[in-house]
Deep mutational scan, measured.
Amino acid sequence: AEEIWQQSVIGDYLARFKNDRVKALKAMEMTWNNMEKKEKLMWIKKAAED
């Protein structure tokens, strides 16, 4: 689920960090860890469908 979420937001994060992939990935990891369980559930369901 986290991978699907990352694939959907990586472009936004890379743009925000001027294509600094290391910073973008760290920010994504922090965002994922801070997400509410119900927000993650949507992505977990999406992962299950694929």
Rank of each mutant, 00 (worst) to 15 (best):
I44Q: 09
K37V: 13
A15P: 05
I44Y: 13
V22S: 09
V22P: 05
I10L: 13
D12T: 08
A48E: 13
K38D: 13
W43D: 02
Y13D: 00
E29R: 10
M42G: 11
D12E: 13
E49W: 09
R16F: 11
K46T: 08
L25M: 14
K26V: 10
E3D: 09
W32I: 01
D20G: 01
R16A: 12
L14E: 03
A27Q: 06
W5H: 00
A27S: 06
R21K: 14
R16C: 09
K46W: 06
E36H: 07
T31L: 04
K18Q: 15
G11R: 13
A27W: 06
L41Q: 13
L25P: 00
F17Q: 02
A15D: 10
M35H: 01
R21T: 07
K40Q: 06
M35G: 01
Y13N: 02
W43A: 05
A24V: 07
E3P: 05
D12I: 11
W32R: 00
F17N: 05
Q7L: 12
G11T: 11
E2M: 14
K38T: 15
D12A: 08
N33V: 06
L41T: 05
F17Y: 14
M30I: 15
K45C: 10
K46I: 10
A1Y: 04
L25I: 13
I10P: 01
A48N: 09
K18D: 14
K37L: 15
K46A: 12
K46N: 07
A1C: 06
A1N: 03
A27K: 04
N19V: 02
R16K: 10
Q7H: 09
K26D: 08
Q6I: 14
R16Q: 13
A24S: 05
W5K: 00
E2H: 11
S8H: 15
I44F: 10
E29H: 14
E36K: 08
R16P: 01
V22K: 10
E29I: 09
A48I: 11
E36C: 09
E39G: 02
W32L: 00
K46Y: 07
F17V: 02
L41I: 09
D20P: 00
Y13L: 03
K46F: 12
K23T: 08
D50L: 15
M35E: 00
K40G: 01
V22T: 13
V9D: 01
Q6V: 13
L41H: 08
Q7A: 15
K26S: 08
Q7C: 12
W43V: 02
A27I: 05
A48P: 03
V9K: 04
Q7D: 11
V22D: 12
D12S: 12
A47M: 09
A47G: 04
M28V: 02
N34F: 07
E2T: 05
M30D: 15
K18R: 12
E29W: 09
T31V: 14
K38I: 12
I44K: 05
L41S: 07
S8V: 08
M35P: 00
W5I: 00
V22G: 10
K40P: 00
E49D: 12
S8K: 06
M42W: 15
K38P: 09
A47R: 03
L14I: 05
G11H: 15
A47D: 04
N19Y: 12
Q6N: 07
K26A: 11
V9W: 02
F17C: 05
A48F: 12
R16D: 05
E49K: 09
D12M: 08
L14N: 02
W43S: 02
T31M: 13
A48D: 09
K45H: 11
N34T: 11
N19G: 11
I44R: 03
T31K: 10
K26W: 07
A1Q: 03
Q7F: 12
N34R: 06
W32H: 01
N34G: 06
A24M: 08
I4Q: 09
N34H: 09
T31W: 06
K45P: 04
K45T: 12
A1D: 04
A27P: 00
E3K: 15
G11L: 11
W5N: 01
R16S: 08
I44L: 13
E49H: 08
I44V: 08
L41A: 14
R21V: 11
M35V: 02
T31G: 06
A24H: 01
